[in-house]
Each structure stands twice: as C-alpha cells, then as structure tokens.
C-alpha cells in the first residue's frame, strides 16, 4: 500500500528559516542546514523548501542550498520560490531537486505547468496555491506571497493544473498560517475530490491531531507543516506515532516503539517513550 506522507516544509527567506504567521509576520528560527540534519533522522518522507518571498523580492532558487541538500538528504526534495520559467525548473532539478513547487507563475503563466510536465515529467511539477477566504467568504487564490488576490477559485484552478499536467497540488491556507487551529478541512476535501493527483495539505497545524485530521477528514495524500516541526524535539517521529495510532498507514523508520506513545484527545503527548534513532543508513 502506498503510504500517507509526512512532509516538513522548511520556510525560508533568503537562507534563514522563518516562522510565518498569516503570511505577514516572519520570525527567524534558525539555519536550514541544522534542520535538514534533524529531519534526516526523524522519519520524514520528503522535504519541501519554500523561499516564500523569492518571487516578490526577485530572487531565483538558491542553487548552493539545493546542492547542500542533495549531499545530505537522501529523500525526495521539492524546491519552491522564484520558479518562474522553464529555465528555473531546469536549473533547480539539475542542482538536485526532484520536484519544483510553482506558485505565482502557475497562475500568471499556466503554460509553465504544461511545459514543465512535458520536459521533466508530471511527477516533477507541484502546483502550489496560497488560499484565503475573501470578503464574500469564498476561497480565493492569492499570489505574490499572499498579497495579491486573483479572483480564481482554488477548486477550478486545481482541476486546470491537473489537466495541464501537474503531478501534485500543494494547498496552503493563508487564514490558517501560524494559527495552530488545524487545516482548512473543507477546502482540502473539495480539492481532493476534484482532482485525481495527490494533494498535500499545509497551513494551520498546531497539534499532532491535525495531521490525522488532514488525512482522514481532508482526504489528502500527504500532510505538511512548518512551524510545529521547528519547536518540538523529534516532532516528526511524534507526528508519525500519532498518525499510526489513528490507523493511518505510514512509513516508520526509527527504532521507536510507536505503540508506547500516549496522547490526550487533542493530540498532545502524554507519554513519550525513549526513542532510539535508527542509524539511518
């Protein structure tokens, strides 16, 4: 059985990891290199690195950083931020990324999805949508780091992206970003039902329970989060333990006894067994 995936999203501005709140406040967290080394030991299934203001600030993907990843990171790597052309996709993949996340350019120039899929395969193209409820209480896609409304309905655009050859859809809720109140499950359900490609949920995780909700109630193939993983020791192992308890088929690698974890009904850890991190190779 194909496993449900847990994907930490490393949100950066330039080369510093930041905690993002509502796409408007950014608190510095630490160095990318340190986070990657931890995640390699902690049961994650893939890693996504997003430079959230790259397009707005006119930056291209940081090739040196991608090179660093591929020397340390024997997991699928997705890179987003500043991907605006076929050339950007080529450079990013050539440097060692497996997939690119295309956000603003997917909206302003949807042909890039088709071209990218034709040249590099659908599996390499993730369309990333930042979504907010507008004044009419309807979901709408925003671009330029969540600043500019597009008038586009995310369900319609997800279908369009899939038909153009996108391999996955990354759904990030601006309203939930940094709010710790869980994913926008209605939104996830609508998008998952509309497309036949995997959907990755992001935005709003504050408790381990939220990961399970994303998979079970949001019906997504993969759950992602940023802030929560930066603040708890062995956070991704705990998240996997919770997902396993919720009956979700996940890949486990640490020599932890996952059944010894105990959580309260909100997904807070009550009992955490001693975890022996597997020598990971």
């Amino acid at each position: 059985m194909l496993k449900k995936r847990l994907i930490p999203c490393i949100v950066i501005r330039d080369n510093i990891i930041v905690q993002s709140i509502g796409f408007s406040r950014y608190l510095p967290v630490g160095k990318v290199e340190v986070a990657v080394e931890f995640f390699m030991k902690w049961d994650v299934d893939e890693i996504i690195v997003l430079d959230i203001t790259a397009t707005r600030d006119g930056r291209k993907p940081n090739i040196d950083l991608i090179n660093f990843f591929t020397e340390k990171c024997f997991l699928p790597l997705t890179v987003g931020g500043g991907i605006n052309s076929l050339e950007d996709i080529r450079n990013t993949i050539k440097a060692g990324a497996d997939k690119v996340a295309i956000n603003t350019a997917a909206i302003t120039n949807p042909e890039i999805i088709q071209q990218g899929a034709r040249v590099f395969g659908s599996q390499a193209i993730i369309v990333s949508m930042d979504i907010k409820k507008n004044s009419e209480n309807k979901h709408e896609i925003y671009i330029d780091s969540g600043k500019k409304p597009t008038g586009l309905d995310p369900v319609d655009f997800a279908k369009k992206a899939a038909s153009l050859g996108a391999g996955e859809i990354f759904v990030n809720s601006i309203d939930r970003d940094g709010m710790k109140n869980g994913y926008d499950l209605d939104l996830l359900r609508m998008i998952s039902a509309a497309v036949n490609i995997p959907v990755i949920a992001c935005g709003g995780v504050g408790k381990m329970q939220h990961f399970a909700e994303g998979i079970i109630d949001g019906r997504v193939s993969a759950v992602s989060a940023a802030n929560i993983f930066q603040h708890i020791e062995q956070s991704t192992i705990i998240a996997k333990a919770f997902m396993k308890k919720a009956g979700i088929d996940v890949r486990l690698i640490s020599k932890a006894n996952y059944d010894d974890f105990e959580f309260d009904e909100l997904g807070r850890v009550l009992k955490s067994p001693k975890i022996e991190e597997a020598r990971w190779y």
């Binding site: 194909l2 496993k3 659908s122 599996q123 391999g167 996955e168 490609i197 995997p198 193939s221 890949r251």
Partner: peptide, 13 residues
Amino acid sequence: GPEFRIPHVGWNN
C-alpha cells in the same frame, strides 16, 4: 482502477 492514482509516486512496501 480509478481508485488508484498514476503515476505511482511515493513510499510503498
């Protein structure tokens, strides 16, 4: 079948 997505992408045992 329609319940399986192609390409087969991800972790499988």
